[in-house]
Design a protein around this nucleic acid. Sequence first.
RNA 1: GAUUCGUUAGCUCAGCCGGUAGAGCAUCUGCCUUUUAAGCAGAGGGUCCCGGGUUCGAGUCCCGGACGGAUCACCA
Length: 590
Amino acid sequence: MAGFVFVQIAYLCRNFFNMSLMLSEQEQVRRQSLAELYQAGINPYPPEQFEVTTNTQIITEQFNENKDAFQDISIAGRIMSRRIMGAASFVELQDSAGRIQLYFKRDDLCPGEDKTLYNNVFKRMLDIGDIIGVRGFVFVTQMGEITVHVTEMKVLSKSLRPLPIVKEKDGKLYDAFTDPEQRYRMRYVDLIVNEQVKDTFIKRTKAINAMRNFFNEHGYLEVETPILQPIPGGASARPFVTHHNALDIPLYLRIANELYLKRLIVGGFDGVYEFSKDFRNEGMDRMHNPEFTVLEIYVAYKDYLWMMDFTEAMIERTVKETTGTDKVKVGDHEISFQRPFKRVTMLDAIKEHTGFDVSGMDEAGLREVCAKLGIETDESMGKGKLIDEIFGEKCEPNYIQPTFITDYPVEMSPLCKRHRENPELTERFELMINGKEVANAYTELNDPIDQRRRFEEQIRLSERGDNEAMFIDQDFLRALEYGMPPTSGMGIGIDRLVMLLTGQSSIQEVLLFPQMRPEKVKKMAETSDFVKLGVPEEWATWIVQAGYQSLEAFKEEKPAVLMQKLNGLRKKNKLDIPALQIDTVEAWLK
RNA sequence: GAUUCGUUAGCUCAGCCGGUAGAGCAUCUGCCUUUUAAGCAGAGGGUCCCGGGUUCGAGUCCCGGACGGAUCACCA
């Protein structure tokens, strides 16, 4: 340990000067404190465990009922604020459960003659953001706040960057850390300082657990299927392409897991489900992330009517277990998840919201209706796509309360069984909530001949220019030819469901690490680069500080300007080196 | 991809008609033994996103670019 500490101090000293040119004042102060901790014989990153006996939430909730239980406790967490008043101080400590106030009194923390731990370690070497462990007893201050009176303190991790300081009074936030870019890029900071963010992600996991439990209770099997697929099937979307070196073939990141799950139904499972990451190489905005989470479930010997009841029950239970109620506020609307949900056929929905009865219409007729409704169309659109456009444009936004839209045109649903009463339609439903599609389900197509014909129809659409039409998966067709029992399947966009449950209006708020354009890292020239050009070391360290961050910028500078800047820095920083002469500078730039 | 708004201290933000860059919190120094977003007093801290242009002079005006937000289009 002693040897290691020496190495650490030597490293800090050697690099301090160079780093100090790049670091903000507050970062320099923290590195200084770090060095002082080592010098005081304290390891700021101790390896051994720190035993925690309780947490902030348990203390605040249970102290008043059972004071005796909290007379010798230890907790650990991050320092979020400090109020130092001479020989006494208050600290707000945050752990995973919440926050509590700590009270430090010099003579209680340091009962002997040596007051170093309080005067130097606590007051000088610790900062907001550091992680400490404390032992002590709980009491109530004159202001009525439950507080831990600290008798022992241990440094557990020194923080080298200043946290954004968010303060709160009566529910009002001061200096909140709100910039979405910084919040998403540095989610760890967001989670530390913005309490509500943690809640969102706890709810997300609760929702997924509720669904998983529901499926398991029904005896369905959670499975895993390939993410890398030779043929990206099961949906119409643009896939990501990658390459497998050993096989020397292209592979696609999955856009859906439908075709693999159905193979498992062929294989004899009664019910299979998977929570899966899917990937689509399309635009990004507040509703779309290139990777997103989907739940798909397939159950043998069922149809879409059964699946509607099943979905309804699952959603209702998930909402209750996640939020504690069956009502959720989203924007101006209060959404009730109380069963039963409304059910409307797609053609009735279009009739209701546009006045047009499009049942049985041909492509030309549909184009005419679109024109009358002011909906743009193009040559690549077939009947299904046209009806979908009308619905999406004129109907979908109206369904705020949970509503099942049923019986979609056959052209829109190449994997779905034809409707038992009308072969132009399919046995399909989508669940609309808050004007958005949340779930999608079929009575699955298990007729291999019909399935092949539908894929071929998709290929024809693809040749017309619809670049989202499906590929033909021959192995999937072979599986169907062995015989798949009648099956119903359903998929849910988990991210969008979580958005509803947490009242968020952008998908980035429910993804821990949403996709962002990579941060641009400026390539900075280093001291040694300038030394190589013949600049003496004592000057080289100041060149970056003078504003030359690349060798190119440095080499292009006029000698007189460079000399002025450097001599300016010499004067400002009272450097103990002789002032530069113009011919010296000219020599560097050659 | 289009439109639009934004980018100034560690954080949140001012900055007027173009004239030496500001506040609060945070940081540092000193004083303070129960304070409640903020004790008191003082101090330090800036590549005003980047690059051009106009100008005697640009954080400010003009052009181009980067990144981000919002809206729209495509998609789940």
